[in-house]
Design a protein around this nucleic acid. Structure first.
Length: 1022
RNA sequence: GCUGAAGUGGUGGAAUUGGUAGACACGUUGGACUUAAAAUCCAAUGGGCAUUAGCCCGUGCGGGUUCAAGUCCCGCCUUCAGUACCA
């Protein structure tokens, strides 16, 4: 019987589905274990071999834990709201739900063929109303909550209202808008309903606010900071501008400290925790209030160095700061306005691109130093960011490099407040050792004491206090999109109202067009049935809006991260219609034990999900406040891209060339004049032609001169000639001579070619390439001598747009899912980025064939009840030990080698003993489940191998009586010597010294020292 | 600039507490089987000198600790990833 992997894999995939082998129960005698993958967005392109890497690792772990006696929850689903389906809808009119459904079918087929042990009965899709009903429900809970700093948790808004009614807001310690004004209980009770709601909105954990947002005109939507890369949209690379809009926001800043502290309690990678810490950006210091001379206005700043308060010689405001126009003097008005206009025009990207340029303008106004009462000039400058701190800084040129540069540039006074430190180096001084000088009451104090004292003194005069600042901003939660969760919100007199939870879900309305409306409203503005009837509690036609009982509904939808911020809880009880999950299920599964996914979600999904989990915990909905105990980032699988080099122009250098000019006929080129001729045809140079150019460049000599040393081969010549001919008169032209001077001068551009057109020797199938796109139909290739065209290669991220994807479908068809699974693990450490090379899969495929032959002959199963030999047992047990350690350390690559070694050894030992071969299958089955199920059934079992217990390691089988000692001389191994392990140190030394090879090495010299480490090594020092 | 990770054969990568560097594969070369190819099997494969033994060099670079360093310490270089006028 031969190894027919296609048949076997289909058979067992059906078996698992029919028997619901991997269905998890919500109660069990066994301990629970929850293994989760980051669920995919089902894109139209389907899976490539990079996607399943993490899923394979988690699947191995899940299967291993089942063998180890755990009740394992290993679910999968789809993050199915998102931009691509909507973009496709805009282009084709196809409803995103249809596209999504089609894509999910493809994903499911691809996932199934790899043999994952997912419990599909718990599948979730974020775009399903049964799911987003609960996303909407969580939104309502956030709206109905405020953050109480006294209890340090989120509480019901009703507790806040009770406080207001009893004593106003002066004693309320809450996270709220900066703009909140103080009121007494009487004042509160005197407010009308709308006014009260306006106040409460400033406290709610999700709130409407006019915010400056990142607006992407091309996508017609607002983007979060982490959806912008290098100043352009992550998706599509469109420009992004700042714009003020009324948006829903999430008060994640309330959780900044707890999000930071929580990192210490979870087993996530240091890199990931570090990027979350940076994102949260905690800095401790003080807020300082500066009075402005001749104005009522004050300027608040945040500083991490209150100890340097006497070093302040100017202040800088962000150009967007509210006070700028108020305080600017008549004289300076023109300059300031011009500067503000100039900076507003510069995009965020321009500003980032040129960090070095120092710019700013004096406002003409002066602030007053809080202690010395000296006047401090107030400047504006774009190095101060409106979005961080208060958008204003107290500038200490001797303590901060940017302030120093600014002061130098504009010739502002630079007082020195550090004892014995040169002013030009003060900014780099070690703050732990410097001592403050010229600073009144801070003189002689070190950084730590001076900071404390400065804050104390500021508090005394009421012009400052100790303060902790966080970089983390509240998250904008509105998107001007169609394909997202609708808000359960309608508007009465412009105030938002929540729809009662019992009427959820509020389903997405049908629209004619998926684009923003002509008046610039979000796509839901196109819906004709999108109003809320408060009597019938139904969505009704807009034409019924009457301001009495029928009101407009929110037109924005929720961002992509809404649905993914709580899905891990839904898997625990995926079909519950009465709650987002039952308390029993939540209390049983609690949290994810192992979460595997990409590091690109470090500051997006993984931060928002932690935020929601903490909120839900505060409100008593979930039992734990961190949703994932352990998290592993799988590394990216890289593709090997292929490039063709398209020539844009050829430079011709000759005395006699005549060039055809449009409308002027042929005109001669001047002597030693280089003419660049644009090539209209698609002309591609083979890769080695590029190397020629690189050679010229690397020699650093004149390109023309260097080129004269080369003979351009005739193959190249004819093609270049054909390309140039239409432009050049051929009468007095010696082409071959001319072509010696024709070269590529930085005029080629690399173009991705689909890797399927290229063989393993980098040779391009030129016909296939020509037929790829209409524009390449008449492509001309400058080839190697043997008429082959070689592509350039580069390893980069595997992606459809780089035409370097490898499809797992083809791999499964040709080698089988077990080979794919093993190979993905064999490539290297899970967390490391690694290039894909399909050719290497023959190694693991060959291993599976060897494994098969260990059990099966032409006549069927060859496994016997024979007693295992000592060697058999030794091989088995060292494999058990190693594999178990490897899985516990997520070192799956090394365990694949271990399996190979085991099979090689057992084959050599001609082992047919069931006592060895059966446990071996259990060891391997997490990695290669199909073949192991099949061989297991060939051993005579009816049930799935997944029910078998993991073999138990017995150290007794590995006990050795002798050791093959490496004998080294001065640390260099020269030969080995087999000696009994129970031999004494002295006897070992004697035995080694007596050996003839030792004497040969020493050549009569007496060793200075002999190091004997029993069981390890012997080193003779000469 | 800062933070994090990593530099080992032609390639992917092993080496778990300092103890035989290069496991296991891919690739390459030679051989067997075959009319041939594929598949399979066997052998060799870090570099250099010798081709029998043997010797020298070798884990990014320069130092150091140690009987012994890919592994530990100090100082650099390079690559990748994240992040940035953060006051």
């Amino acid at each position: 019987m031969i190894y027919k992997f296609n048949e076997i894999e289909a058979k067992w995939q059906n078996f698992w589905a029919e028997n619901q082998t991997f269905r998890a129960e919500n109660n069990s005698e066994k301990p629970k274990y929850y293994v989760l993958d980051m669920f995919p967005y089902p894109s139209g392109a389907g899976l490539h071999v990079g996607h399943p890497l993490g899923y394979i690792a988690s699947d191995i772990y899940a299967r291993y834990k089942r063998h180890k006696g755990f009740n394992v929850l290993h679910p999968q689903g789809y993050d199915s709201f998102g931009l691509p389906a909507e973009q496709y809808a805009i282009q084709t009119g196809q409803h995103p739900a249809v596209t999504t459904e089609t894509n999910i079918k493809t994903y499911r087929r691809q996932l199934d063929q790899i043999g994952f042990s997912f419990d599909w009965s718990r599948e979730v899709r974020t775009s399903n109303p049964e799911y987003y009903k609960w996303t909407q429900w969580i939104f309502i809970q956030l709206f109905e909550s405020w953050y109480n700093l006294d209890s340090d948790k989120a509480e019901s808004i009703s507790t806040l209202v009770a406080l207001f009614e009893a004593e106003g807001n002066s004693k309320v310690n809450a996270v709220c808008d900066d703009a909140v004004s103080q009121f007494t209980a009487e004042e509160w009770n005197a407010l009308d309903e709308k006014q009260q709601q306006e106040v409460l909105l400033q406290y709610r954990l999700t709130y409407l606010a006019e915010t400056e947002v990142n607006w992407c005109p091309a996508l017609g939507t607002v983007l979060a900071n982490d959806e912008i890369v290098n100043g352009v949209s992550e998706r599509g690379g469109h420009p992004v501008v700042r714009k003020k809009m009324t948006q829903w926001s999430m008060r994640i800043s309330a959780y900044a400290e707890r999000l930071l502290q929580g990192l210490n309690t979870i087993d996530w990678t240091d890199a990931l925790k570090e990027s979350q810490r940076n994102w949260i950006g905690k800095s401790e210091g003080a807020s300082v209030t500066f009075n402005v001379e001749g104005h009522d206005a004050v300027i608040d700043v945040f500083t991490t160095r209150p100890d340097t308060i006497f070093g302040v010689s100017f202040m800088t405001l962000a150009p967007e700061h509210d006070l700028v126009m108020q305080i600017t003097t008549e004289d300076q008005k023109a300059d300031v306005e011009a500067y503000i206009q100039a900076t507003a025009k510069r995009s965020e990207r321009d500003r980032m691109a040129d960090v070095k340029t120092i710019s700013g303008v004096f406002t003409g106004a002066y602030a007053q130093h809080p202690f010395s009462k000296e006047p401090i000039p107030i400047w504006i400058g774009d190095y101060v960011l409106a979005g961080y701190g208060t958008g204003a800084v107290m500038a200490v040129p001797c303590g901060d490099q940017r302030d120093y540069d600014f002061a130098k540039h504009f010739d502002i006074n630079i007082p020195n407040i550090f004892e014995g430190v040169d002013i030009s180096e003060a900014a780099f001084a070690d703050k732990a050792t410097t001592v403050i000088a010229n600073s009144d009451f801070l003189n002689g104090l070190n950084y730590k004491k001076a900071t404390k004292r400065a804050i104390y003194e500021l508090e005394q005069i009421g012009q400052g206090e100790g303060k902790t600042n966080y970089r983390l901003r509240d998250a904008v939660f509105s998107r001007q999109r169609y394909w997202g969760e609708p808000f359960p919100v309608y508007y009465v007199n412009g105030m938002p109202k929540m729809i009662d939870a019992q009427h959820l879900p509020i389903q997405l309305p049908e629209v004619e067009k998926y684009l923003p409306t002509e008046t610039g409203e979000p796509p839901l503005g196109n819906a004709s049935v999108w109003a809320w009837n408060t009597e019938t509690n139904q969505v009704v036609a807009n034409e019924n809006i009457d301001n009495q009982t029928v009101f407009p509904l929110e037109l924005n939808t929720m961002p992509g991260w809404a649905g993914s911020s709580w899905y891990f809880n839904r898997y625990m009880d995926a079909h519950n219609t009465g709650a987002f999950a039952s308390q029993e299920a939540l209390n049983y599964w609690k949290e994810v034990d192992l979460y595997i996914g990409g590091s690109e979600h470090a500051t997006g999904h993984l931060l928002y999900a932690r935020f929601w989990q903490k909120f839900l915990f505060d409100r008593g909905v979930v039992p734990v406040d961190e949703f994932a105990k352990k998290l592993i980032n799988q590394g990216m699988i890289l593709g090997t891209s292929a490039f063709v080099h398209r020539v844009a122009s050829v430079n011709v250098h000759s005395k006699n060339v005549q060039v055809k000019n449009p409308g002027k006929g042929f005109t001669p080129l001047a002597d030693k004049f280089i003419k660049s001729i644009k090539i209209n045809k698609q002309l591609f140079f083979t890769n080695s032609m590029l190397n020629l150019k690189r050679y010229c460049d690397s020699k650093g000599v004149s390109k023309e001169a260097t080129l004269r040393d080369f003979d351009i081969q005739e193959e190249y010549s004819n093609l270049i000639k054909n390309s140039i001919e239409p432009f050049v008169s051929s009468e007095d032209l010696d082409f071959l001579d001319t072509l010696k001077y024709a070269l590529v001068l930085g005029s080629t551009s690399p173009i991705h070619a689909d890797v399927s057109f290229v063989n393993s020797s980098d040779e391009l199938d030129m016909e296939a390439f020509k037929n790829w796109r209409a524009e390449y139909k008449d492509a001309v290739f400058v080839t190697e001598e043997n008429e082959v065209y070689k592509v350039g290669r580069e390893v980069e991220k595997m992606s459809k747009s780089k035409y370097n994807v490898v499809n797992p479908d083809n791999i499964c068809a040709e080698y089988g899912a077990d080979s794919l699974r093993l190979y993905e693990m064999f490539l290297g450490p899970l967390e490391q980025a690694k290039p894909w090379n399909t050719a290497g899969i023959t190694g693991v495929h060959g291993f599976l064939k060897k494994l098969w032959k260990l059990y099966m002959t032409e006549n069927g199963c060859a496994v016997t009840d024979a007693e295992p030999t000592k060697d058999n047992l030794k091989t088995l047990h060292k494999t058990i030990k190693k594999v178990e350690e490897d899985i516990d350390n997520f070192s799956f690559n090394t365990s694949v080698s271990t399996f190979m070694i085991a099979v090689n050894e057992l084959t050599a030992q001609k082992c047919k003993s069931k006592a060895i071969l059966e446990p071996l299958l259990v060891l391997l089955s997490p990695y290669a489940p199909h073949i192991c199920e099949e061989l297991h059934s060939q051993l005579g079992y009816d049930s799935s191998i997944s029910t078998k217990a993991f073999p138990v390691f017995e150290a007794s089988h590995l006990v050795e009586s002798s050791k093959n000692y490496p004998i080294s001389f001065n640390g260099k191994m020269r030969f080995t010597l087999e000696l009994p392990l129970d031999m004494s140190k002295d006897d070992i030394e004697a035995a080694v010294m007596a050996h003839e090879k030792t004497q040969a090495q020493l050549q009569g010299r007496t060793p200075k020292k002999v190091i004997v480490v029993p069981g390890k090594i012997i080193n003779i020092v000469g």
